[in-house]
Amino acid sequence: MFEQTDPNQIQLNSEGQLKHYLTTEGLSRELLTEILDTADSFVDMSAQQVKKVPLLRGKTVVNLFFEASTRTLSTFELAAKRLSADVLNLNISTSSTSKGETLKDTLMTLEAMHSDMFVVRHSDSGAAHFIAQHVTPDVAVINAGDGRHAHPTQAMLDMLTIRRHKGDFAPLVVAIVGDILHSRVARSQIHALRTLGAAEVRVIAPQTLLPKHIEALGVRVFTDMNEGLKDVDVVMMLRLQKERMTSALLPSESEFFKLYGLSEEKLALAKPDAVVMHPGPINRGVEIESVVADGPRSLILDQVTNGIAVRMAVMSMSMSGQTTEKQARLGNGE
């Protein structure tokens, strides 16, 4: 009874360019490819002596982390600095928000400092959408992970890593293995892989770690890893949180490893040239065997390098989309 507009359109300006980066869902193949192409150019640049470009010179980027994460925070910081932005890192523990200050209060305070971009990590699904809906115009919002919903920079650094090793997505069979239920990474990977045209996306997990009707996202579901890994080109492992053991989702780490951990033996079921990825940090011996994580088919360190490039890409594209929209608005005499 209400007109259902695609809520992910909020990411785009009137020209169809990125102005926020909240989720990979609903973005076109052209746009995702543009992110990859832009990131590719930054990867090459990072290998050079001078690693900085002036794309965000004079802009202030606020890393607004409501959930602690040293790794993601530092790659975003580095990405912003390589774009010549001024960076402010704010670790806002949930205890300070429980003092009565609402997320909206926090946001208004930061806006008064004339920030140009918020990079947000929050434990609530939809937090980045909420912030994008409530920030003043011209401020870009980049989602650095919201609840179980989306982690779009992680997904696109994974896509970049895949493309740099495999080229075209069309023939690829990709398996995502582990705790799909609690994973924002998995959801963002699935949308990106589907849009980029991967031949088949599989999820492999016990039923306790699968969200309801996950097949509706266009994936094939396997509960048996040996079956699910057959003829796979890319194996994407997910991190398993220890607390899953105490909430009756799994009996033990060792049983999980036995059934869903990536060992050399299981990897042998995939294609001979299959590559292995993991968003980190790794639980060695829980979701992946050390010999696989450190082996020749592991792309885990490439993922980290590509992460900086992808973050530079979405930050510069979103800022540029905001600028275009601002100019259009000023041109209209507003």
Binding site: E25, S125, G126, D146, G147, R148, H149, A150, R184, R187, P211, K212, H213, I214, A216, L217
Partner: peptide
């Protein structure tokens, strides 16, 4: 409600 939309949004579902 624990169903497709819930899965997509990554919210906690109520069966």
């Amino acid at each position: 409600h624990d169903d497709t939309t819930c899965t997509r949004l990554g919210l906690n579902g109520i069966p």
